[in-house]
Computed example of a mutant assay.
Amino acid sequence: MIKNEKYNELIKYIKGLGKVVLAFSGGVDSTFLLRVVKEALGDNAKAVTIMSPYIPKWEIAEAKELAKKLGVQHEIIEAPIIDSIKFNPEDRCYHCKTAVFGMILAIAKEQDYNCVIDGTNFDDISDYRPGLKALKELEIKSPLLECKITKAEIRAFSKELGLNTWDKPAYACLLTRIPYGNELKVEDFEKIENAEKYMMSIGFRAVRVRCHGDLARVEVSKNDRSKLFDEKLLDTISQKIKECGFKYVTLDLQGYRVGSFNETIIKNSYEQNK
Rank of each mutant, 00 (worst) to 15 (best):
Y180R: 00
E139A: 15
L163Q: 03
D123V: 09
K133T: 04
T150G: 09
K148H: 14
F122G: 06
R155K: 15
P130Q: 03
F122Y: 15
K133Y: 14
K168A: 01
L163I: 00
V186C: 04
G162M: 00
F157M: 01
L174G: 04
R129Q: 10
P179N: 01
K185W: 13
N164I: 05
K148L: 13
G131W: 01
T165M: 07
G162L: 01
R155Y: 13
I178F: 04
C147A: 11
I140E: 13
T165Q: 05
T165V: 04
D167G: 05
T176L: 00
L175A: 15
G162F: 01
L132N: 04
K136E: 15
L184M: 07
A172M: 04
G131L: 02
R129N: 12
C147K: 11
L163H: 01
P169C: 01
D167F: 11
N121I: 05
E153N: 06
S142M: 15
R129F: 12
A156P: 10
Y180F: 02
L184A: 07
K133H: 14
I149E: 08
D124E: 05
D167C: 05
N121T: 08
L175W: 13
K133Q: 12
E183V: 01
G131N: 03
N164G: 11
L175E: 06
K141F: 09
R129E: 11
E146D: 14
L175R: 07
A156K: 15
I125G: 10
S126T: 15
K168G: 05
W166D: 08
Y128M: 09
L135H: 03
D167W: 10
Y180L: 00
D127V: 11
L184Y: 04
F157L: 01
S126H: 15
E183Q: 04
K141V: 12
I149Y: 12
E187W: 04
Y171P: 07
L161N: 03
K151I: 11
C173Y: 00
P179V: 03
P169T: 00
W166F: 14
N182P: 06
I178R: 00
S158K: 00
Y128K: 04
P130M: 02
